[in-house]
Each structure stands twice: as structure tokens, then as C-alpha cells.
Design a protein around this nucleic acid. Structure first.
Length: 110
DNA sequence: AAATTGACGGTTA
DNA sequence: GTAACCGCCAATT
């Protein structure tokens, strides 16, 4: 049986699902999404998934940054998108994680 | 099949 | 706070 391939697709779906749960004005790290998707060590896979995602799915992929608050390379528009949602930056390329890092625990509490 | 790459994370310097 | 190094895992070459 091809169960292992099913696992991979499941992981991708989980990633997309988590993406939709990110509230406006918040950001999530690749590692956080990977953890919530069941693969804490597969942060890079999340990045690869996002890269493969077509823009027509309306997924808030611009709300995903790396653990340092760094935005995705080769995608300068991401900064504008985040700024438009109220996200502030520390320097010219780092998101203010202290303010805008999404805390999934709030979802449980709500 | 082996080596390289990649929208990364954590630790160390 | 920033930079360099290593470790992880799957996709690509």
C-alpha cells in the first residue's frame, strides 16, 4: 500500500490548514507550523510546501516567517503585505516577533 | 543511486 | 543582536 505517500499529502494539507488559522496581523514560524502539522523537524518541508503553493489559493503564506523574524527571500512584496495588516518590523527586514508571533494557545482559549 | 539544494531551527561564537 | 556551523528531512538534479 502507498500509505507513506498519503502521510506526505496529509502533512501538506495540515500545513495549509494551519495557515488559514493564522489571525490577521500575526505571523507564524516554519517550525511552529511544522510542529502543529505533526513534524516538528520538518520546518524546511513547510517552506517547500509554501513555495509550491499557487497564489490562487488565497493562503496567507505572507504570514509565515522564519524563527528570526526574517521574511522569505526573493519575495520583497511580503513586507508590504504584512505592513498592510498592521505588522511592524524591528529593522528593515525583521518582523517584531515579540508583538506579532502567533500563539496557537489563544486558539484553544477562544 | 549519490550528491546537492532549500521560503529552516537551535546552539555556539 | 548578528553571524557561522551543524543537524533534519524531503525534493531535485
Amino acid at each position: 500500500m502507498d500509505e507513506n505517500r498519503n502521510d506526505k499529502e496529509s502533512f501538506f494539507s495540515e500545513v495549509y490548514t494551519v495557515l488559514r488559522e493564522i489571525p490577521c496581523g500575526k505571523v507564524a514560524t516554519y517550525g511552529l507550523i511544522a510542529t502543529l502539522s505533526g513534524r516538528q523537524q520538518c520546518a524546511r518541508l513547510v517552506g517547500q510546501a509554501l513555495r509550491n503553493v499557487p497564489a490562487n489559493l488565497s493562503l496567507p503564506c505572507h504570514r509565515v516567517v522564519n524563527a528570526s523574524g526574517r521574511l522569505a527571500p526573493g519575495w520583497p512584496e511580503q513586507k508590504s503585505l504584512l505592513t498592510k495588516e498592521g505588522v511592524t518590523f524591528r529593522s528593515n527586514r525583521y518582523v517584531d516577533m515579540k508583538r506579532h508571533l502567533w500563539n496557537p494557545l489563544e486558539l484553544i482559549n477562544s
